[in-house]
Every structure is written in C-alpha cells, then in structure tokens.
C-alpha cells in the first residue's frame, strides 16, 4: 500500500473513531501525512490547540491507528517524555501504570477516614 493510500485509511479510521469524540467538546485534529516508515503526523486544531490533555488524546489516536498494518507511530508538534508516554500508554490500554517516585504524594492526603463518633 502506498503512503497516500495509507493516509486515506488512517484518515477514515480517525474520522470514524477519534474525531467525533474530540469534536463533541469543540476540538479537532487533522491527519496531515504518513511517512515512508509509517509515522502518522497529526495537527491539533480548534479547542485542542493548547489543551493540556493533548498528550492523552495523542495516545488515544496512537492506540487507534497502530491497529492499521504499516503504521508505526504518531507524532505531532509537541512531545512528552518517555516517562509520561509509558504512563499514558498504560492508561490508554487499561494496564498497570508504571510507578515512579514522581508519582508519590508528598503528604498522606489520602488515607483511612477517622472513625465517626456515633
């Protein structure tokens, strides 16, 4: 399959799975290209521009399009660290989120409730 044909397949999949969910809250994305090595490049548009949850959305796109034979990854103009990507991947696939010292809360804000005096 040529990269142009692959681009069409990716766009159809994104249009059917991801875009309606994004557009429901005013966001949007465009699938710009697919490289020869199968990397999809997307651009965030509308309310997605500058949204702090773009990395989560990117992971959702990644999980969706990686099911297409020939697709190896997803890129957009911003990146997250590998630490964050591993956590997002685990989150998106329902797996166990890798623990990191950075995730440890500095104070025990969550714990057993104090017994209520009847």
């Amino acid at each position: 399959m040529s990269t142009d044909e692959l681009l069409g397949v990716v766009r159809r999949q994104v249009d059917q799975t991801i875009r309606p969910r994004i557009q429901a809250h005013g966001g949007d994305i465009s699938v710009d290209s697919v490289s020869a090595s199968g990397v999809v490049h997307v651009t965030f548009r509308a309310a997605c521009r500058g949204c702090g949850l773009r990395s989560v959305t990117t992971e959702a796109i990644r999980q969706s399009v990686l099911t297409i034979p020939g697709i190896s990854g997803v890129e957009h103009t911003t990146r997250v660290s590998e630490f964050a990507r591993e956590r997002l991947e685990a989150f998106a696939t329902g797996g166990t989120m890798p623990w990191s010292p950075a995730m440890e809360l500095p104070h025990p804000t969550v714990g057993p409730r104090a017994p209520v005096d009847p």
Binding site: S55, F83, A102
Partner: peptide, 14 residues
C-alpha cells in the same frame, strides 16, 4: 539535557 526528574515529574520531553 532535560533532567530526568523533570521528564518524570512533568512529562517534559527530552
């Protein structure tokens, strides 16, 4: 280089 601690705590890319 982006310190690993910041990559981990805040997701800042390398």
């Amino acid at each position: 280089q982006m310190p690993e601690e910041l990559q981990d705590r805040y997701g800042y890319p390398e």
